[in-house]
Design a protein around this nucleic acid. Sequence first.
DNA 1: CCGGCAATACAAAGTAGTTGGTATTTTAAA
DNA 2: TTTAAAATACCAACTACTTTGTATTGCCGG
Lengths: 210, 210
Amino acid sequence: MANQIKLIIADDHILFIDGLKLLLREEKDMALINIANDGKELLGIMHHQLPDVVLLDINMPKINGLDAVRFIKQSYPAVMVIMLSTYNEDHLIEKAKQYGANGYLLKNSSKEELLQTIRLVAEGHSCFPYRLPKIENVFDSTDNFLKQFNLTKREFEIIQLIKNGYTNQQVAEKLYLSIYTVETHRKNIMQKLGLNTPSSLMKFIVENNI
Amino acid sequence: MANQIKLIIADDHILFIDGLKLLLREEKDMALINIANDGKELLGIMHHQLPDVVLLDINMPKINGLDAVRFIKQSYPAVMVIMLSTYNEDHLIEKAKQYGANGYLLKNSSKEELLQTIRLVAEGHSCFPYRLPKIENVFDSTDNFLKQFNLTKREFEIIQLIKNGYTNQQVAEKLYLSIYTVETHRKNIMQKLGLNTPSSLMKFIVENNI
DNA sequence: CCGGCAATACAAAGTAGTTGGTATTTTAAA
DNA sequence: TTTAAAATACCAACTACTTTGTATTGCCGG
């Protein structure tokens, strides 16, 4: 077929790819032309073989999905990119958009959603999970998280800064607080999360995609 | 067919399940009899429908895979359970074994490995990722990582312990080293990775799935 | 209108890790 | 076999964070 949608998948889960392969084989308007197991491999392939659409796992070894999409969009702006992710999180979706992705698909979407997203994006549309107007819902997506651990907004705010590598002193300056206040907040955070070292806090933050 | 292997899959990634569905449809000796999107759902299903083998994602909402396998093995010891996981980590594999799982399969295994594991386990065998006597091959899978940052084996070993929350003192005890030595190693690690705080190291470790 | 939570602030003693050195021994590669 | 890298060890000054306290203010819901 002349106008098949040429696809490349980049994902480090071979089983997942095996599944997608079969799934796509049934679609006559799509052709899976190559497969990469990490970001580096993907860029290598794209060096000599360009698809219409890339399905790009966010979480990959070597070069992660976000870095990859940024590079791809710089080098091959015509190639459409759909991010695949386990996480339905604003900041990831935002980053994906910012780096030029054309779509964002949760791994627990259905086959139909996947196919529709591919077709839409191949036609030049964007396709992202729908999110309410933004400003006041910064905490919406994390509401569960907050409730789960009884963290307050302020505490959560401070966690964000810690995640970005701010020291207590820097957090204090950023938020116009005394460093003592930050220490108190941090103390309460650690207690609520049942943690005991700065590193374990960071581990918790990263592992839970806070 | 009389002696088909009856399967239930529990995984919160619908896409992944969709793939597995197709993949299993081609195997005449297997029958996928039901699907669950989380551990709770799985237990609900098993209340009235027992499979021969359960494919059980470790990482699921509501009731996670490890808790689920423990419960299943208590209530239905005859049902064989294969854990599915992204992570090739000793402690997870150990826990899976401990809770009674009959197999452990990485999500980046191939279709063939999956099918073989299912068949082996259905026949009553166990099937876990093969690990050499431990000490000398811990580094095989991470060779690339080591090279990328010029980390030595010892440094990498120490990173592993740091990841598990060991303090310098504890690392020293575990490896029969002076704490000074550990500090030196750590110093070198930080330098090689271009990091400057314990937290940033932990972030790096977790984000890169070290 | 009051009781509790959130947010703020302070302080001293203690622990963990960093920094910037130096230095010896073991091991692997050329 | 010699040479470089790796692994080991030490030290002192320093920074960051924790711990265990106390305490004040403002706000919101019952």
